[in-house]
């Protein structure tokens, strides 16, 4: 996964370029198809595909952590500029019910956390992050930082994201529009 110190700089740069190109290719296709958050989902798939050791000579590359942090800060920035004074006031009114709703959801999730730990022998950090209600970028980033099994967390969140994007949102679109 990590390139390691023994990898030469040109090889590292080539690996980064390969990852970005893979991510951009699939991400662009999903964006053009109008899939919500298509670039995010597509770049996960694209980067994962080009980074697999398809042949013995292929070595997996990794993206420098600073690039991920720049990406996440920009995601935060794009969300932050949408906030207005009116939205802050309305948020203050709904904050307590929203907090209570998510705490209730967290209590429900303890059941699934227990199932994942008992039935699938998953460690607590991975089990908690697999069912944490949040976005793919948010939760997977915490999983990487906390040393959880990213594959497990990503598997459950991929199901959530695809259910949301391909099933729930189209239904909401149909019902609400």
């Amino acid at each position: 996964m990590a390139t390691g110190d023994e990898t030469s700089r040109p090889t590292q740069l080539l690996g980064i370029g390969k990852l970005l190109l893979g991510g951009l290719s699939v991400g662009s296709v999903l964006e053009l198809l109008g899939v919500p958050a298509g670039m995010l989902i597509g770049s996960v798939v694209g980067a994962a595909l080009v980074n697999q050791p398809w042949t013995r000579r292929m070595k997996p590359a990794s993206l420098p952590i600073v690039l991920r942090q720049i990406g996440l800060t920009t995601v935060g920035l794009a969300a932050g500029v949408l906030l207005t004074l009116d939205s802050l006031l309305s948020t203050a009114v709904i904050a307590l019910p929203v907090v209570l709703a998510y705490l209730a959801l967290t209590a429900l999730n303890l059941v699934f956390i227990t199932v994942l730990m008992i039935r699938y022998q998953v460690d607590p950090v991975t089990a908690v992050l697999a069912v944490t209600p949040g976005g793919l970028a948010e939760v997977t980033t915490i999983a990487i930082d906390k040393g959880a099994q990213v594959g497990v967390v990503l598997s459950v969140h991929a199901v959530r994201l695809f259910s949301l994007v391909l099933v729930i949102l189209p239904i909401l679109l149909l019902v609400l529009s």
């Binding site: 991510g23 958050a37 995601v75 990487i144």
Partner: peptide, 8 residues
């Protein structure tokens, strides 16, 4: 930004 996060 989505490309950087998704690729990572």
């Amino acid at each position: 930004a989505q490309l950087l996060v998704g690729t990572a």
